[in-house]
Design a protein around this nucleic acid. Structure first.
Lengths: 216, 216
DNA sequence: GGTCATAATGAACACTGTTCAATATAATGG
DNA sequence: CCATTATATTGAACAGTGTTCATTATGACC
């Protein structure tokens, strides 16, 4: 345990302290309301110090958000697979939505605000998204869902669950029906929708895909 | 045409000029990047003047966003009903998404950012939302969709199309499949999903609604 | 033309994220 | 133990932000 390593440990310790204070402040104030100066004051250090540990506010909050999404990944992976892949998938979808509702500011930062533009190309989907793809693949392989374009279908499903999560976060005052029913309703609709991709109850409702496009 | 009315006209004229300059700036810079000072500079007036016409930045941009959503409403109502209510509904859904993609900043301000908290209770859904409800109701009344909870179903459908719109806006760098296919895929999935609310291809996939809830 | 309500101004206030020369602290070599 | 050197911290300063308000200019009326 040489002396420079002790120094390094102290650095890491302060880094953690900043991250945790930022996480707390961010959780109940959100991106905009969290101020680097106030954060520094809470940590009893000068504003400049924060910039020795994080390049800027964006990088700091990216760290915070990353950590919470690692939690989401753990949550998703911890959902027990009791044999029914479709049920398993639905539970994952629900866990995703509930995560967003439990961490509205983190979720908003991750998917509802313009990206911090880290510069890394190409955009790498979060491992949590792969969980969804895997869940769908398992259903297809088990013969419980029809053969389909997995890439597109997972993007469609993600869009659906994101949409509800994001709207509940952004517009809590909207006259929503009972939230639990709404979530279940959306999950059932989305999964039923991919169960039979093109068929509906009636003749007239059966269209070629491109025919729904409105003239612009 | 008394004199005070001339004054009033000038007031309205300047109000319009502000609104239009703000709309332009807002369209290509977004909420955060639009600065009241720079806007005033562009209009060759002092910053304070803006506050004689709009209480604050939020109210100004609310005005801008409202106008663009009036356009959306017009667009939705202009979609011809050629007899098939389901097709008509799908075209509305697509028009909604395309509106969001054409006006990303307006859309973001309307549904992706924390509400300005105007203080008016209760939250009144936008007439464009009623268009969607109407579209669904027509389908049900024509016997093209099963009897259902219209309120919940419209919220589910809105969530789905919002989700895609919002994600395409917020994460353009994501490796999306071809956008047109994605949009059609989502619309087909959502409408097929409500076509038969609970049934899926398999035994195992048939659950009571509350059974999909994950333990937390 | 003088009076008076209304409109416009722009300096000032209280913030923001970020930078950087100056300072304090800790580790090393003599 | 002290001088030197490397690292860590500071806080004033910069350039911006939205917003307010006493002051000034302007157009309308008698």
């Amino acid at each position: 345990m040489t002396s420079p390593s002790r120094r390094n440990q102290q650095r890491l310790h302060l880094r953690r302290a900043i991250l945790e204070a930022a996480s707390r402040a961010f959780a109940d104030k959100g991106y905009e309301q969290l101020s680097m100066r106030k954060l520094a004051a809470e940590l009893e250090c000068s504003p400049g110090t924060l910039y020795l540990y994080f390049r800027d506010k964006d990088e700091l909050l990216r760290g915070v958000v990353e950590e919470s999404f690692a939690d989401l990944l753990k949550t998703l992976r911890a959902i027990p697979d009791e044999g029914d892949p479709v049920r398993h998938l639905k539970m994952k979808l629900r866990a995703y939505i509930e995560f967003g509702l439990r961490n509205p500011n983190h979720y908003q930062c991750a998917f509802m605000l313009p990206p911090p533009d880290t510069g890394e190309r190409p955009y790498k989907p979060h491992p949590a998204f792969d969980e969804l793809v895997q869940g769908l693949r398992t259903c297809v392989e088990a013969g419980l869902l029809p053969e389909m374009d997995l890439e597109m279908t997972s993007q469609v499903i993600w869009s659906c669950i994101h949409g509800l999560t994001a709207l509940l976060i952004a517009r809590p005052a909207f006259p929503w029906v009972v939230q639990d029913n709404l979530i279940d309703g959306l999950i059932e609709t989305a999964t039923a929708g991919i169960a039979r991709p093109a068929a509906t109850q009636t003749e007239g409702a059966r269209h070629g895909i491109s025919r729904t496009r409105a003239r612009t």
